[in-house]
Simulated scan of single mutants.
Amino acid sequence: MRYWAAAKAAAGRHEETFTASTLSDLLEQVRQKYEGNAAMLAVLARSSFLVNATPVGVRPHHEVVLEPGWIVEVLPPFAGG
């Protein structure tokens, strides 16, 4: 998992490795790891995601299948226009 902007700041790292079969499973693992980190949980709740450079969009997270080695990027909302 690769973190950008506020997600990177909240996690205290740019990336880390998890093993999951769906985006929903992955996000649950991340939420468990950062359970006491309110900033990280808030960022996750409002972020969008890329899976192997493809936007997840409005697809249900339990339907987004992950393959070994794929990169999931956490993109918090960006300010500006």
Rank of each mutant, 00 (worst) to 15 (best):
residue 1 M to E: 12
residue 5 A to F: 07
residue 7 A to Q: 01
residue 8 K to L: 09
residue 9 A to W: 00
residue 10 A to K: 00
residue 12 G to Q: 03
residue 12 G to E: 03
residue 13 R to L: 09
residue 13 R to H: 02
residue 17 T to H: 08
residue 17 T to M: 05
residue 18 F to C: 04
residue 18 F to A: 08
residue 18 F to H: 12
residue 18 F to G: 07
residue 19 T to C: 10
residue 21 S to E: 14
residue 24 S to E: 15
residue 24 S to K: 13
residue 26 L to G: 01
residue 28 E to C: 05
residue 29 Q to F: 08
residue 31 R to F: 05
residue 31 R to V: 04
residue 34 Y to D: 05
residue 34 Y to T: 07
residue 37 N to E: 09
residue 37 N to M: 10
residue 40 M to V: 03
residue 41 L to I: 14
residue 42 A to I: 07
residue 43 V to Q: 00
residue 44 L to T: 01
residue 44 L to K: 00
residue 45 A to F: 06
residue 45 A to V: 03
residue 47 S to L: 12
residue 48 S to R: 15
residue 48 S to F: 10
residue 49 F to T: 01
residue 52 N to K: 12
residue 52 N to V: 10
residue 54 T to M: 14
residue 54 T to D: 11
residue 54 T to K: 13
residue 55 P to E: 12
residue 56 V to Q: 04
residue 57 G to E: 10
residue 58 V to Y: 09
residue 58 V to E: 15
residue 59 R to F: 11
residue 59 R to P: 04
residue 61 H to Q: 06
residue 62 H to V: 11
residue 66 L to H: 05
residue 68 P to K: 06
residue 68 P to Q: 10
residue 68 P to M: 03
residue 68 P to N: 09
residue 70 W to N: 13
residue 70 W to S: 10
residue 71 I to H: 13
residue 71 I to T: 14
residue 72 V to R: 00
residue 73 E to Q: 07
residue 77 P to N: 02
residue 77 P to Q: 03
residue 79 A to H: 05
residue 79 A to N: 05
residue 81 G to V: 11
